[in-house]
Design a protein around this nucleic acid. Structure first.
Lengths: 228, 228
DNA sequence: TAGTGGTCTAGACCACCTG
DNA sequence: AGGTGGTCTAGACCACTAG
């Protein structure tokens, strides 16, 4: 917990800058010395200072503008990075055995997808206990080879990772009351609070897939932040 | 939607590398040419290539190891960055008028905090409609000046931003059934699915505050990802 | 042990923006 | 208009690690 990282190079500068911010030597909103000045103080090249400050700016700790200089962020915008793992990985990382069962597979259409769509519903298990219900729609005009896959042995979740790539995506998290169907599959009571993740992915302008993951009651997603 | 960004410098290299990955010229798992080779191909300095590849590695698109080289990530780890704004900001960005009301303020203790703690419960409104219930515990041994604040006019959410800094934090998202009290405050029915965010922040080893935000039914958190 | 990425340097030019 | 950060360069040394 208290190991001394003993930073060197640009990370040492980053650490020192962070120290001064936390120590209120450079209070929020204040303009800190320019890169040249800091480079001179730390006895290094300006590029090294730049590297350190740029990383802090990306983290939201600093705000940098040309000519205006670098200021300590007034509202240290908390950015939490949520890692979205493969469902199989997530289950196995919990030390549980992964299980999978296809519930339904049929062609149809979907409001967010152009042309025909493949609808796949499946359950993912952790140690034989339902963990998450996957309800997915795959665009058959964009990913026609999905027609040849039964999704009986491999989940659409994993199959798509191997057979499709995306350029952008959109995720929303919400709490939903379990419908009768969802409740039944997850072994919960109808109306139970369900953590839901809706994902939409695109390849350029083409919508590839839309998926809703309904997690078993009690599920929680966790993340860590470092701030100022 | 289709504006031509016309990248230059290291961003152009980044774009080209991404293009080759998406075009499957460099399939997942494959080792791509070394920095020197790419620098020669693109006619730039190695540092410029390094900048581009390093950014992609940080985004999870590439995996880099010394001596082994740079490989296209097999599982493009989806990292979604969730921005945690000030509650006031979040409400105002929705075009609603922000409102605040303190519900309770009392001293006590808290399992996660050492020493005495201040317990503050408050409601945040969007256009006179309850938006989120804030139940917070503040460590009085770490932030003693909280004793002098009534939290009648300013929320603990904002007050802490001005009066405390943190070095690390921990956030969990979950879906919870509304308790009778929560339901009453949010104007929901008991048992309704509530999106809950639990946050814990630390300054070094000292726990500063623990807060639970219970959002009004229908609330959703949204984020965008760019991937491979 | 040799090859790869990680980092630093000293200098330079440029884009941007505030005063 | 001038100062600030953003970026590039050419070269160098080092740390790590795969073979």
């Amino acid at each position: 917990m208290s190991a001394a990282p003993q930073f060197t190079g640009w990370q040492a500068i980053q650490a020192e800058v962070l120290r001064r911010i936390h120590a209120r030597e450079w209070p929020p909103g204040q303009t800190i010395p320019g890169e040249v000045a800091l480079a001179q103080e730390f006895g290094c090249a300006r590029a090294t200072v730049n590297r350190a400050l740029q990383a802090l700016a990306e983290a939201g700790v600093l705000e940098r503008r040309r000519k205006a200089g670098t200021r300590v962020a007034l509202h240290p915008v908390s950015k939490a990075t949520v890692t979205i793992p493969l469902i199989r990985q997530e289950i196995e990382e919990r030390g549980a055995a992964y299980g999978y069962r296809l519930l339904r597979r049929q062609e149809g259409t979907h409001a967010m997808l152009t042309g025909p769509a493949l609808h796949v519903t499946a359950l993912h298990f952790a140690d034989d206990t339902p963990f998450v219900l996957e309800a997915r729609h795959i665009s058959l005009s964009v990913i026609p080879q999905a027609r040849n896959e039964t999704f009986h042995e491999i989940s659409a979740n994993e199959w798509l990772l191997r057979n499709a790539s995306y350029t952008s995506g959109d995720i929303t998290f919400s709490a939903q009351a379990a419908s009768a169907e969802v409740a039944q599959h997850l072994g919960a009571e109808t109306g139970a609070p369900i953590f839901v993740m809706d994902r939409m992915t695109w390849d350029g302008e083409a919508a590839i897939t839309a998926v809703r993951l309904s997690y078993v009651p009690g599920y929680r997603i966790r993340t860590v932040i470092g701030g100022s």
